[in-house]
Every structure is written in C-alpha cells, then in structure tokens.
C-alpha cells in the first residue's frame, strides 16, 4: 500500500511547527501504524534526515504512551484501540493521512509528535491514591465488595492515562481522566476515608494545569481507547458537590 503522510514537525517547545508531507510506498496492510512510522524513520535516518519523534513503548495498547492524532481522531479512526494497535488495513491504498500531536496548553509539545503529559501525574499526586503504608493492610477478604461495584471500579481503573480524552475534547478538558480515578476510589470502601479531600484536591490541580471545562459533549468517551464512560464525570461532579458542601476545608 502507498500513502501520503502529512506529519507535524516541530523542533522544540519554543519553536513553531508545520506540516511536512512524506510519501511512503510498499507498506504491508498487516503492518501496524507505528511500524509504518518506523519504516519511514529508518528511511529518513539513512538519508541523513532527522526521524520523526513520537512516543511509544509497550505497543500492545496498555502503557498509554503512544499519542498520535490521526485524521481528526486521537489514536486514529478505529474505536477502542490505541495508535499502536491500529493497523494499515484500516486505511485505503493511496490515502492521505494527517498526523498531529495532542493539542492542549496543558500538554506542551516537546518535539514533533511528543507532548509532555506530566500534568496527569500531578493530578494523581494531588490525591489519586489511598493513603495506606506498606504493611498496614488487613486480610484482603475482610472487605467484601459487591461485584457490581468492583467491576465498575475496575472499568474506571482501566484508564491508561494516554490523554486521548484531552485531545478529543473541544475544550481540552481532563475531566474524563480525573473522574476515572476519582470514581474508582469513590466506588470502593477503601477510598471513602479520604474521599472528600481527594476530589477537592484533584479537581483543583486539574484546573491549575490549564485544562478546559467539561461541556458534556461526550467526545472524550467516544474516543477513549478503553471506552471509559462519562458516567464517571457525573460521579466526580457528585463527589465534588458533596465534598464542597460538607467538607471542613474552608
């Protein structure tokens, strides 16, 4: 298969970038999207040009590192997969493919398609945990948890922190990401002790990072590679309102 790639090139955070067009030939339909970029990069290196910088690691859709915005969709046109799981058979021979980085003021571009997502880490650091020191735990089966709650908590916990929700949202909002963690812990008894402080601190950090607000468009969930539901955002709103009205954090 042959393709015309329109790829965003940007030297560094302070430089302005632009699209550069690269034709690429003889790609197997079985090759993955990132393998196609690998091939292009090898060609660029052997021509003495700089390869395209992009984030990737596990290449099996779980580490959340890959982050390409392809033809108007984070992680490309298919549902419920990450960029690394996308295969060229999802495109037509001769297609023109536009590839950009996530765009959000909270995710500054580092180089080409690589962005800095440490804002997500700081949101988790603000409260996305249960404060239990190693060695303090009681027997695991002392806390029975209704299967439906455990399953829902798991569904929220499957977030891979890739940032597709931010990339897809017209407001570059991080509500889906933040709410997934808030929800997971709000659904479990272990999370109740710190529930109020957690949601207050995580939302405050999220706002501080410069993400937009949620306008309930649902784009985040529609484009999430793990299919995380916006029901989680509602749960976070609920937790937030509850916490703000009843916490003693004045």
């Amino acid at each position: 298969m042959n393709f015309t790639l329109k790829i965003w090139r940007q030297k560094g955070a302070k430089d302005s970038g632009q699209f550069v067009t690269y034709p690429i030939k003889d790609i197997s339909s079985d090759s993955s999207f990132l393998e196609m970029i690998d091939i292009l990069n090898n060609q660029l290196v052997e021509k003495g040009e700089e390869p395209i910088a992009f984030d990737h690691d596990c290449r099996e859709g779980i580490c959340g590192m890959c982050s390409m915005y392809i033809n108007g969709h984070p992680h490309g046109p298919e549902n419920l997969i990450t960029t690394c799981q996308l295969h060229m058979r999802s495109f037509k021979d001769g297609d023109s493919i536009t590839i950009e980085p996530w765009r959000s003021s909270a995710f500054p571009v580092i180089k080409d398609l690589v962005v800095d997502r440490s804002a997500f880490d700081r949101i988790i650091q603000a409260g996305g945990y249960v404060s239990v020191n190693t060695g303090n735990a009681q027997d695991a089966n002392n806390i029975p948890i209704p299967k439906t709650d455990a399953d829902k908590a798991f569904d929220a916990a499957t977030c891979i922190g890739c940032g597709a929700c931010v990339a897809a949202c017209k407001n570059a909002s991080a509500m889906l990401f933040t709410s997934a963690k808030v929800s997971q812990l709000a659904l479990l008894p272990q999370g109740q002790v710190e529930a109020k402080a957690r949601v207050e601190n995580m939302v405050a950090q999220m706002d501080k990072e410069g993400f937009g607000a949620c306008t309930n468009t649902g784009a985040c969930s529609a484009e999430c590679p793990k299919g995380i539901s916006i029901e989680n955002i509602a749960r976070m709103n609920r937790e937030f309102i509850k916490a703000k009205l009843s916490s003693e954090n004045v």
Partner: peptide
C-alpha cells in the same frame, strides 16, 4: 492484602 487496601480492583465473586 496490600494491593486490595490500595484500591486495586481485583476480580470478585458475587458474594463480594
């Protein structure tokens, strides 16, 4: 024990 205390959502049976 430690992981459950942290909120790791292991699979459960209907009895919890």
């Amino acid at each position: 024990d430690q992981c459950v205390a942290q909120g790791v959502p292991f699979a459960r049976e209907y009895g919890g």
